[in-house]
Design a protein around this nucleic acid. Structure first.
Lengths: 207, 207, 207, 207
DNA sequence: TATGAATGAGGGTTCATTCAT
DNA sequence: GATGAATGAACCCTCATTCAT
């Protein structure tokens, strides 16, 4: 099942907003602004201007600015959970599953459609505590995919460290790429970056 | 050369503020607040209250709030550069040097004295561009320690990935520990966490 | 002529809106909300929600929010003028006329059907000046009933004070009951409250 | 003890703000604006302009706009309680005590210094519920003066109605004078208005 | 008539910064 | 140095009103 099919299904189930609709367009711009300037530095006027409406009109779609942040995070996590699941399902071995997860997360963080993943990671503190609890529930599903894969590798003797710790390290490492990885300037492709990540963990490409 | 000696030297060279002086105390509290609440969410009144003065009085020590952030970063990086250098110098092999660097950075990020390192990483965006240039210069020295060590390991065949990429991955991974590592709740010690980090990269403890 | 007959006549003359119609229902809810929360604190969304429509739809019935306030006042004053007139006509003596007026006004202010009277008194300031002039004209008819009755009592030597002043004092006193009189909690009935009002003025019950 | 002496004592006890100080001047202007335009229609910018400062500066003295309303009410009630107490103490008979209370309340509501009393009465609903509880406590002292006096008259057989009801009626009647009594246009003086009020209750002047 | 998205002015409040004392 | 009142721009959000559908 390819990416656009996954997205289409989520949209028709109302789990993710249609990127062509008013709400979807706003969330996309919000994700971009939040990633680039940070949640705090992004004003509701910035958000409104980015989709060509007045700031007051925002509040037709969302009750508060924070609700926008939450929506960005919730929809991102839903989309990425579905993408990760598909990636894992399609990979035959544990190592390939891991590679697929790394690759998918790098794409989420750095890709054109996925700037919201960086928001999820770096603006977490700006989310109200009540909202954090809601998002954490969704996050658990997502994290389980990682932990199961890492656990398998551990049992196969191909991973020396604790899967839980490794996952958290990888969260930081992969998210952090958003601050420095610039594929457009030539150099490393996303596949190359994935290879490097695997190599850092001692997995040579193609083994 | 132990840590307190290093600190003392830096203080007497006026490279780092005396933590007992007014300026030093403020920077320490600022680092803590910036790490805990973020730069944007920390008000100058918060900063002033933390050291028991009025907000207006802050501006006798620093011209702007951003100058405080910059000072936190500059002094942090000076201190940590000295600490890292000492750590590297004391380690005989490349792998031990790497372990020392990891351990030192984890301590910087999570330790009692070093909360400022997290600020350096996560509040970078809040620093004015002109200030970023200044800090980056200092950072290069610091980064060189890492790159040299990783390069050696690479040449020894013990590291498969590109040192530059690995360093950036480690920056993210190690900084991110501030969001989840809670030694006080029992469990992993800083040494244990260091071991895990090394293990993730394929370096078994004591090899 | 009883109350419902009076109301029916006013409706068929188009002087008061049918409480079963869209306009009448809205005015009734508006009166309740204006009395309970005040005109300023009542939003058009509140008004719309109270009759189960969207806020935009309100403006098919009234050009502005203030027009709703004016309509509440105008219809209230029309209805109450008719009720007062009937009450006065039915009472044989001046004292009984006064009692009937007091009783009728207390009922208007506190009764189930007449919550709008409190609006007329306490939200006067919110009415635009142009509208005030229109309503004042209607009010004069209403006030004349009071003044004529008080004047008679004065001439009979049963009232020591100036009728004009007494009427204004009674306006305040009777309107103010809306803030404290709670018949549902037991205690004073409307008749009892009427007796008390008369007693305050030196008119013993049944004299 | 005359009025200015009473005021001076309250000021030196910090129960009422000095009308020459920043806080006192603001409260005075706030009372005037709240009475003239209503609390809701008065903006913090109006308040600030009335004392010649910027709106942001208001929040140095008061945390919220509502706190200003509360302060107006609290200080008013403190001042008026002291004035009423003095008025009652100075009057020898129950009837004269009542007259003194009526006269004092009329002066509070309509006098130059006392515009705040009208705010206390007519803006009650705008006060947050928690604040209402605080103010009510103060109000009880004030009301007791009235109730004791009315109770005495009742026992002397000079008042037919229930003191509790009479007090509430008088609250409405006397407060309402603010909406229509215009001494400057000639006609009734405050003493004359007091006489009329007493006469309405069957107390001839000088009896 | 009814909807509901959009408007746009203005609301209360925050906050880094200034400055007379 | 320290204070604290004052600034003024900007913030998030509200709300009466409009209008295409």
């Amino acid at each position: 099942m390819n990416q656009s099919k996954i997205l289409k299904d989520l949209i028709s189930d109302n789990l993710v907003s249609d990127p062509n609709g008013a709400r979807g367009r706003l969330l996309k711009e919000a994700a971009r602004l939040f990633r680039d300037k940070g949640y705090e530095r992004t004003t509701v006027r910035d958000l409104a201007a980015a989709v060509g409406i007045q700031s007051g009109s925002l509040f037709h779609h969302f009750r508060t600015k924070e609700e926008i942040l939450k929506a960005v995070m919730v929809e991102t996590i839903r989309l990425n959970t579905a993408l990760m699941q598909a990636a894992v399902d399609a990979a035959p071995t544990s190592q390939e599953k891991l590679r697929a997860l790394v690759r998918a997360e790098l794409e989420s963080v750095n890709g054109q459609t996925g700037e919201a993943m960086a928001v999820l990671v770096f603006e977490w503190r700006s989310l109200a505590e009540e909202s954090q609890a809601d998002v954490l529930e969704l996050r658990d599903i997502y994290e389980k995919l990682w932990l199961d894969t890492l656990e398998s590798l551990r049992q196969e003797g191909r991973l020396l460290a604790d899967p839980f710790v490794v996952r958290r390290m990888l969260t930081g490492a992969l998210s952090w790429t958003v601050t420095w990885y610039r594929p457009e300037r030539g150099g490393l492709t996303l596949d190359g970056l994935t290879d490097q990540t695997m190599a850092m963990m001692g997995f040579a490409a193609g083994t």
